[in-house]
Amino acid sequence: MADAQKTTLKAWPRQSKGGGKKACSVEGCKRPYRAKSYCFFHFKKWRQGELPHSRYRTCSKPDCRVKALKGGLCEKHYNETYKKAAAA
Protein backbone atom coordinates (compact mmCIF):
# COMPACT_ATOMS: atom_id res chain seq x y z
CA MET A 1 0.00 0.00 0.00
CA ALA A 2 2.88 2.39 0.71
CA ASP A 3 4.20 1.80 -2.82
CA ALA A 4 0.86 2.88 -4.32
CA GLN A 5 1.02 6.18 -2.41
CA LYS A 6 4.55 6.87 -3.61
CA THR A 7 3.60 6.36 -7.25
CA THR A 8 0.64 8.73 -6.96
CA LEU A 9 2.86 11.41 -5.41
CA LYS A 10 5.47 11.02 -8.13
CA ALA A 11 2.77 11.33 -10.76
CA TRP A 12 1.79 14.77 -9.47
CA PRO A 13 4.28 17.23 -11.01
CA ARG A 14 4.76 20.67 -9.56
CA GLN A 15 3.01 22.99 -12.03
CA SER A 16 4.45 26.38 -12.84
CA LYS A 17 2.32 29.31 -13.91
CA GLY A 18 2.86 30.97 -17.25
CA GLY A 19 3.50 27.64 -18.95
CA GLY A 20 7.10 27.63 -17.75
CA LYS A 21 7.92 30.57 -20.05
CA LYS A 22 8.28 33.15 -17.28
CA ALA A 23 11.34 32.92 -15.06
CA CYS A 24 11.75 33.83 -11.40
CA SER A 25 12.35 37.56 -10.81
CA VAL A 26 15.36 36.96 -8.53
CA GLU A 27 18.55 37.80 -10.39
CA GLY A 28 20.39 34.71 -11.57
CA CYS A 29 17.49 32.30 -10.91
CA LYS A 30 16.22 30.43 -13.96
CA ARG A 31 13.49 28.39 -12.30
CA PRO A 32 9.97 28.86 -13.71
CA TYR A 33 7.62 31.42 -12.21
CA ARG A 34 5.29 30.08 -9.51
CA ALA A 35 3.67 32.98 -7.61
CA LYS A 36 4.31 36.68 -6.89
CA SER A 37 6.93 36.57 -9.70
CA TYR A 38 9.04 34.09 -7.72
CA CYS A 39 9.83 30.41 -8.26
CA PHE A 40 8.63 27.95 -5.59
CA PHE A 41 11.99 28.19 -3.77
CA HIS A 42 12.11 32.02 -3.60
CA PHE A 43 8.36 32.26 -2.93
CA LYS A 44 8.91 30.17 0.20
CA LYS A 45 11.74 32.49 1.27
CA TRP A 46 9.50 35.51 0.55
CA ARG A 47 6.74 34.07 2.74
CA GLN A 48 9.23 33.53 5.57
CA GLY A 49 10.43 37.14 5.30
CA GLU A 50 13.95 36.28 4.11
CA LEU A 51 13.70 38.36 0.92
CA PRO A 52 13.65 42.18 0.99
CA HIS A 53 10.09 42.34 -0.34
CA SER A 54 8.05 41.60 2.75
CA ARG A 55 4.51 40.31 3.13
CA TYR A 56 3.26 43.50 4.76
CA ARG A 57 4.15 47.18 4.98
CA THR A 58 7.26 47.67 7.05
CA CYS A 59 8.48 50.52 9.18
CA SER A 60 9.91 53.43 7.19
CA LYS A 61 12.91 53.83 9.52
CA PRO A 62 16.19 52.55 8.03
CA ASP A 63 17.06 48.93 8.89
CA CYS A 64 13.74 48.32 10.66
CA ARG A 65 11.70 45.51 9.10
CA VAL A 66 8.93 45.36 11.69
CA LYS A 67 5.29 45.60 10.58
CA ALA A 68 4.07 49.21 10.29
CA LEU A 69 1.05 50.09 12.41
CA LYS A 70 0.53 53.86 12.25
CA GLY A 71 1.89 56.52 9.94
CA GLY A 72 4.30 54.13 8.23
CA LEU A 73 6.09 53.39 11.50
CA CYS A 74 6.24 50.35 13.77
CA GLU A 75 4.89 50.67 17.29
CA LYS A 76 8.34 51.33 18.79
CA HIS A 77 9.31 54.11 16.36
CA TYR A 78 5.81 55.63 16.43
CA ASN A 79 5.98 55.92 20.21
CA GLU A 80 9.50 57.37 20.06
CA THR A 81 8.45 59.98 17.50
CA TYR A 82 5.03 61.07 18.68
CA LYS A 83 5.04 60.40 22.41
CA LYS A 84 8.12 62.63 22.94
CA ALA A 85 6.46 65.46 21.01
CA ALA A 86 3.30 65.14 23.14
CA ALA A 87 5.29 65.08 26.40
CA ALA A 88 7.30 68.20 25.54
Rank of each mutant, 00 (worst) to 15 (best):
M1Q: 08
A2H: 12
D3S: 07
A4Y: 12
K6F: 11
K6G: 01
T8G: 00
K10A: 08
A11C: 04
A11H: 07
P13N: 10
P13T: 10
P13W: 02
R14T: 12
Q15W: 05
Q15N: 07
Q15S: 07
Q15D: 06
K17A: 13
G18C: 05
G19P: 02
G19V: 05
G20E: 03
C24V: 01
S25C: 14
S25L: 05
E27G: 04
G28T: 04
R31D: 05
Y33I: 00
Y33H: 15
A35R: 15
S37H: 13
C39G: 01
F41C: 05
K45E: 15
K45W: 06
W46C: 00
Q48F: 05
E50F: 07
P52V: 08
H53Y: 07
H53C: 06
R55H: 03
Y56P: 01
S60D: 10
S60R: 15
K61M: 12
K61Y: 07
P62S: 12
D63Y: 14
C64E: 05
C64L: 11
R65A: 04
K67R: 15
K70C: 00
K70Y: 13
G72K: 04
G72H: 04
G72L: 04
C74Q: 02
E75L: 12
E75R: 15
H77P: 02
Y78P: 00
N79W: 04
E80W: 10
Y82M: 03
Y82K: 02
Y82F: 15
Y82A: 02
A86S: 10
A86L: 11
